[in-house]
Simulated scan of single mutants.
Amino acid sequence: MSLHKQPELKEAVLNLPQKEKDKLLVRLVGKDKMLMKQLHFQLLEDQLDLEDRIEQLKERLADLYTDNRHTIKNIPVYSNYKELQSLIRQASGMINEHEKITKDKYSEVDCRIYILNKAFGQFPRLFEKSAVHSASKLHDYVRARIKTTTTKFEKLHEDLQFDLQESMEEMTAFAMEHSLS
């Protein structure tokens, strides 16, 4: 239930003595892991910490693809389509969490382009036309990821777009060549 739907409760909370509000706030923050991460970032970290977070995220994404290089083969069969879609979903989740915590749009777009280009580079045969149902599910999912990434890219400042232009063009070219855009 939302606090906004109960204006009396909201008013009562706002009228509490400061010491009681502080206790409640600390208790509530402790119950929400994402809120704790967001507050930690906002209150205790600076630009250097953001750069470290971005570097760590990129390493984790690279490790994810490296660790799965033996599980997923570049052979168009059912299991490989499913595994690659699962891998991209997992990578997207890591990026989503990073963005929710840091609110850094540039690194979000950079990492989204990275995971798509990595998938395209490592598993190009899985993006060829196929009658296998799991292939079409993977292709639909990747189309949605491309659309989201392109939209977020276009919202970036033109200087930031310039920095990502080459990798964005690489992603777009592969997508067009394989009818994914």
Rank of each mutant, 00 (worst) to 15 (best):
S2M: 08
L3D: 02
H4F: 13
K5E: 15
K5Y: 10
P7L: 06
E8M: 06
E8Q: 12
L9E: 02
L9T: 05
K10M: 11
E11G: 04
A12E: 13
L14H: 01
L14V: 09
L14M: 14
N15R: 06
N15Y: 07
N15P: 08
N15A: 13
P17F: 05
K19I: 10
E20Q: 13
E20R: 12
R27I: 09
K33Y: 04
M34W: 02
M36W: 05
K37D: 11
Q38V: 10
H40V: 07
F41Y: 11
L44I: 00
D46V: 01
D46F: 02
D46E: 12
Q47V: 09
Q47S: 15
L48P: 05
D49Q: 10
L50C: 02
E51F: 03
E51H: 04
E51Q: 13
D52W: 09
L57S: 02
K58T: 02
R60V: 01
L61V: 03
L61Q: 02
L64D: 04
L64E: 13
Y65I: 03
I72S: 01
K73R: 10
K73F: 14
N74V: 07
N74D: 15
I75Q: 14
I75R: 07
Y78K: 15
Y78F: 14
Y78C: 14
S79F: 14
N80S: 05
Y81K: 03
E83L: 14
Q85G: 10
S86V: 04
S86T: 13
L87A: 00
R89N: 07
Q90W: 10
A91W: 03
S92V: 08
S92M: 08
S92A: 13
M94A: 08
N96R: 07
E97M: 00
K100Y: 00
I101M: 01
I101C: 01
T102W: 00
K105N: 06
S107K: 04
E108R: 13
D110L: 10
D110T: 03
C111K: 01
I115M: 02
I115D: 01
N117G: 13
N117F: 06
K118C: 11
A119N: 02
F120L: 04
G121C: 07
Q122P: 01
F123A: 02
R125Q: 08
R125C: 01
F127H: 00
E128K: 12
K129C: 06
S130C: 04
A131M: 09
V132R: 00
H133R: 11
S134K: 09
A135V: 05
L138I: 06
D140L: 15
Y141V: 04
Y141E: 08
V142Q: 01
R143K: 15
R143Q: 10
A144W: 10
R145Q: 15
I146R: 00
I146P: 01
T151L: 11
K152F: 07
F153S: 06
E154G: 06
K155P: 00
K155R: 12
L156F: 03
L156Q: 04
H157F: 11
E158S: 15
D159K: 12
L160K: 12
F162E: 14
D163T: 04
D163E: 14
Q165R: 15
E166T: 08
S167I: 12
M168N: 05
M171F: 04
M171H: 03
T172R: 15
F174N: 00
H178P: 05
S179R: 12
L180N: 05
L180P: 02
S181E: 15
